[in-house]
């Protein structure tokens, strides 16, 4: 049941990325190009998602278990440190280069786009490198 709920959430998330235009890198770059002909659409994606998400997270906040009885696993870290800032900056640079963030990369891969496959493989390589770095540094969580 948990696996089915997960599949459904992924599917609805993916449909949202397609409907919103987020799955199209050209659209994303049009949003990130403030100095060019700016397309503000993606601000509406965030607005719509957060308006609905906020209600769900408000309900979830005081629950100890999910509706399927699994433990609530919300992040507890509050650290605003070099890792958070540096990692987010690196991610933003990568996002700005191609217009892909992780979700849209996977959805475009599902459309059979070879370029999305290249992006996703490189992204997995980046994640794998980080796992290796962390293991070597001995701070793996």
């Amino acid at each position: 049941m948990q696996v089915f709920a997960s599949l459904l959430a992924g599917l609805v998330f993916g449909l949202g990325l397609i409907v919103s235009g987020m799955a199209n890198p050209a659209k994303v770059l049009g949003f990130l190009d403030l100095a060019g002909a700016w397309d503000p659409s993606l601000a509406f994606v965030m607005g719509g998602a957060i308006a609905v998400g906020a209600i769900a997270f408000f309900i979830a906040r005081n629950r100890l278990v999910s509706l399927l009885g699994t433990p609530m696993q919300l992040p507890t870290s509050r650290a605003i440190d070099r890792r958070l800032v540096g990692g987010s900056l690196l991610f933003g640079i990568g996002w700005g280069i191609a217009g892909f963030c992780p979700g849209p990369g996977l959805v475009a891969l599902g459309m059979g786009e070879v370029k999305a496959l290249v992006f996703v493989v490189a992204m997995l390589a980046g994640m794998g490198l980080w796992v290796l770095f962390e293991a070597r540094a001995g701070v793996s969580k």
């Binding site: 609805v12 919103s20 719509g48 998602a49 609905v52 998400g53 997270f57 979830a60 609530m72």
Partner: peptide, 17 residues
């Protein structure tokens, strides 16, 4: 599309925690 994404994120936290 944003609302769909919000529904997905909401479902996931409520059902899967």
């Amino acid at each position: 599309g944003g609302v769909l994404i919000g529904i997905a994120a909401g479902m996931f936290v409520l059902f899967n925690g």
